[in-house]
C-alpha cells in the first residue's frame, strides 16, 4: 500500500509535533510585557534571530521545515502545491521590479519550486520559455499589461488567478485526499475574499471573472453575481455553501474572515494528528508550521506597535496541537 511508505516519516513527525508551539505558549507570548520578552520566549523555543528583522527568523523556520521534509522524503515535489503561491509571488515581484527598475530588499521568498534567479532572469530578459509551462503565459500577460497600461492591480489579478489555478490543478492531480482538500479550501477562501474586496472597490463583472478561480465547493458564477449585487448578497450566497459559518465572520470584518479561513484549514487538518499512515500527517505538519509563523508574526507585530493584548488576541490563529 502506498500509505505504508511513509511509516518512518510519520513516526518522526509525531515526535516533531511535540515541539510545535502550543496554545499555552501563545498565551505566554500574548501576556508578555513587550516585544523583547516575546523574542526571548521564542529564543527559548529555538526560534533564533528576529532582533531587528523577524522575517529572517521566519525564513530560518521555513528552511528547517523544508530541510526536514527533504530528509524524510528525498523528493519533496509531492508538496509543490504548497509552494506555487511563493513562485507566483516571486513572479509578481520580478515583473514589478522589471517595470520600476528598482529592487527593494527581501521581496523574494526563498522556498519555491522555481529558483528565484530563474524567475528574475526570465522576466528581465524576456526569456519566459525558461519558466515552467504553466507560468509562461501568465508571466507574459502580466508583463505586457504592466508595460502597456501601468495597471499594477490587473497585473496582480492575472498572477493571483494563475497561482490559484496552479494550486487547484496540483491538488486535483495529486490523487491525495489531503492535498485535494488543501487546494479546495485555499481556492474557495481566496475567491470569497476577492468577491468581498470587489464589492468594496466596486469592481465590474470583467474583474470578477478574471480573478475568481473555479472550484468544486463554490459556484463561482453565483458568487460573481452576488458580488455585483453587494456584500449582503455575498453572505447569502455563502449560506448555501459549506462556508456558511464564514458569513458571520464576514459580518464582523474581512480580517475576521481571513482568521476564520485559517482556522477552518487548521480544524480540517487536525484529524491528521491521529493518523499514523500516509502523506497527510506530513502535509499537516507543513501547514501547522506555516500557521504558527503567521500567529507569531501577528503577535510580534502587535507587540512592536504596542497594540492592546485583546486586540492582538483576536487576530491570533488556532493552533494545530
Amino acid at each position: 500500500m502506498a500509505e505504508d511508505q511513509y511509516l518512518y516519516a510519520v513516526a518522526r513527525i509525531r515526535t516533531k509535533e511535540l515541539s510545535l508551539l502550543s496554545a499555552a505558549f501563545f498565551e505566554q507570548l500574548l501576556s508578555a510585557p513587550d516585544y523583547e520578552s516575546c523574542i526571548r520566549l521564542l529564543k527559548d523555543k529555538g526560534w533564533e534571530g528576529g532582533g531587528a528583522d523577524w522575517e529572517e527568523m521566519f525564513s530560518e523556520q521555513r528552511r528547517r521545515t523544508w530541510e526536514l521534509m527533504e530528509e524524510l522524503l528525498g523528493d519533496t515535489s509531492v508538496f509543490d502545491v504548497f509552494l506555487y503561491a511563493n513562485d507566483y509571488s516571486n513572479l509578481k515581484a520580478a515583473v514589478k521590479t522589471c517595470r520600476h527598475r528598482t529592487e527593494p530588499d527581501n521581496i523574494y521568498i526563498g522556498q519555491g519550486t522555481v529558483p528565484v534567479e530563474t524567475i528574475r532572469t526570465a522576466v528581465m530578459e524576456n526569456r519566459f520559455e525558461d519558466l515552467p509551462e504553466a507560468m509562461q503565459e501568465p508571466a507574459r500577460e502580466a508583463q505586457r499589461v504592466l508595460l502597456q497600461t501601468g495597471d499594477g492591480q490587473l497585473c496582480d489579478v492575472i498572477l493571483d488567478r494563475a497561482a490559484l489555478d496552479a494550486v487547484y490543478r496540483a491538488g486535483k492531480e495529486s490523487g491525495n485526499e489531503f492535498l485535494k482538500l488543501y487546494a479546495e479550501l485555499t481556492v474557495a477562501c481566496a475567491d470569497i475574499k476577492t468577491a468581498v474586496r470587489a464589492v468594496r472597490m466596486r469592481k465590474n463583472r470583467d474583474f470578477l471573472e478574471r480573478s475568481l478561480a473555479p472550484c468544486d465547493s463554490l459556484d463561482v458564477k453565483a458568487l460573481a453575481d452576488a458580488a455585483l449585487a453587494g456584500e449582503e448578497a455575498v453572505k447569502q450566497c455563502l449560506e448555501f455553501s459549506e462556508y456558511h459559518e464564514g458569513a458571520a465572520a464576514l459580518s464582523e470584518s474581512l480580517s475576521a474572515f481571513e482568521r476564520w479561513c485559517d482556522n477552518l484549514m487548521i480544524r480540517r487538518i487536525r484529524p491528521q494528528l491521529h493518523n499514523a499512515f500516509g502523506l497527510g500527517p506530513l502535509a499537516a505538519y507543513i501547514l501547522a508550521r506555516e500557521s504558527e509563523i503567521k500567529s507569531v508574526r501577528i503577535i510580534l507585530s502587535g507587540k512592536k506597535n504596542r497594540l492592546p493584548e485583546e486586540s492582538i488576541r483576536e487576530r491570533v490563529r488556532e493552533t494545530y496541537v
Binding site: 505504508d4 511509516l7 518512518y8 510519520v10 513516526a11 518522526r12 515526535t15 516533531k16 499514523a276
Partner: peptide, 14 residues
C-alpha cells in the same frame, strides 16, 4: 517490517 520503520522514526528523534 512496518512497525520497525515506525519505531526507527521515533528513535531517530528520541
Amino acid at each position: 517490517g512496518m512497525t520497525g520503520e515506525a519505531a526507527a522514526g521515533v528513535v531517530t528523534e528520541d
